[in-house]
């Protein structure tokens, strides 16, 4: 095995099969610089595993009331509003995950943004101003925010 930082990372991540681990361990036995490197990576792993508990915002309980109110109302309203996110979930993933080479085309993307864009702001109305986030097609502006 050549010295290889990626292998050391995978080793520490526990993402190697037994044979590959053995190869790394053999190499570590013979290579001082990799032993040093893995010790440094271990320190990094240790630090990355520490939880960094940020303070919770004071408005969280208020937000909770808003959300529950919205959620219960939208369930009462019946299913008309319920479909969108869960129906387009799979579709909506596509633009985010595909590289440019297999980008499915602008048509799909705009379909998705219309489907999700129309849905979410209506539910959000009256809460934190989310509108700036969504690029509404003009015909959706009214329904989106009122």
């Amino acid at each position: 095995m050549q010295c290889n930082q990626e292998s050391l990372q995978m080793y520490l991540d526990g993402e190697m099969d037994a044979e590959a681990r053995k190869t790394v361990e053999l190499h570590l036995g013979q290579c001082r610089s990799c032993r040093q490197e893995i010790a440094r990576l271990q320190l990094l792993w240790l630090e990355l595993g520490q939880t960094n508990e940020v303070e919770l915002p004071a408005e969280l309980p208020y937000l909770r009331q808003q959300i529950i109110h919205q959620a219960m109302r939208s369930r009462q309203d019946n299913k008309s509003s319920e479909a969108s996110y869960w129906d387009t979930q799979k579709l909506a993933w596509q633009p985010a995950i595909l590289g440019a080479s297999y980008f499915p085309g602008v048509a799909l993307l705009s379909t998705v943004s219309r489907a999700t864009g129309r849905q979410i702001p209506r539910l959000m109305s009256g809460t934190i101003a989310l509108a700036r986030r969504f690029v509404f097609p003009p015909q959706d502006k009214k329904g989106g925010n009122q």
Binding site: S74, S81, Y85, I120, L123, M124, I128, L130
Partner: peptide, 15 residues
């Protein structure tokens, strides 16, 4: 993060 927390729970309750 607050907005996304809200969006997450709204979706969860819808789903």
């Amino acid at each position: 993060a607050l907005d996304l927390t809200q969006e997450t729970f709204i979706r969860v309750f819808q789903g």
